[in-house]
């Protein structure tokens, strides 16, 4: 079973992002589960969301404590939350940031970076001040982790996104192609 944890802020699309990832894996024939954890359903408040993917039906209905990968939709969260808590040794940390991967401090974990904010703005996803970055960063998740293919991811986006469907698909593809990986990582 693969467990993925999303860190975001209310309004960035972490919860829907976890669902889109789950649906993409479902389209690949996997069993899936996606669920959120948040205090208040408000824009800006820190939100966590989770996706489980497995080859057999998923019975575990608990929080995820030792994720295989972590996705960070907002770089400011790196300063206030230990996003690597419980992260498995070979796990990826995929961060939405304009920085170079080497400038992101997540200990010894593998880091992948994508500028999801600028991609989301380019395609007019969300507003300029509050871009919706979920579909962009999922392109990077697909590329870095390979848990779902970019084809199934774009199918899932088409099923799930209510508006600007092709823009969201293109954003995922842009991110898939522009991901930066820390070359020094193990």
């Amino acid at each position: 079973m693969i467990e993925i944890r999303f860190h975001g802020r209310g309004g960035q699309g972490a919860v829907i992002g976890a669902e889109i990832l789950a649906e993409a894996a479902f389209l690949e024939g996997k069993f899936v589960q996606a669920f959120p954890y948040f205090g208040v359903e408000r824009r800006g408040a820190p939100v966590t969301a989770y996706t489980r993917i497995d080859d057999s039906p998923i019975r575990l209905r608990t929080n995820i404590y030792t994720p295989d990968h972590v996705v960070v939709l907002d770089p400011t969260l790196l300063e206030i939350i230990d996003v690597t808590e419980g992260l498995k040794e070979n796990g990826w940390v995929i961060v939405n940031s304009h920085k170079a991967p080497g400038d992101i401090d997540v200990g010894s974990h593998r880091v992948a970076v994508v500028n999801a904010t600028s991609i989301a703005r380019k395609y007019g996803l969300g507003s300029v001040s509050a871009p919706i970055v979920n579909t962009s960063i999922l392109g990077a998740v697909s590329k870095a982790t390979g848990v779902v293919s970019i084809d199934m991811l774009t199918s899932s986006i088409r099923n799930r996104v209510p508006s600007k469907v092709e823009e969201n698909v293109q954003a995922a593809k842009d991110a898939y192609n522009s991901i930066l990986v820390d070359q020094n990582a193990r």
Binding site: A22, F26, F35
Partner: peptide
């Protein structure tokens, strides 16, 4: 709550 209401599955 959440464990089913907000949990997406097949």
């Amino acid at each position: 709550a959440f464990l089913l209401s907000h949990t997406s599955e097949i």
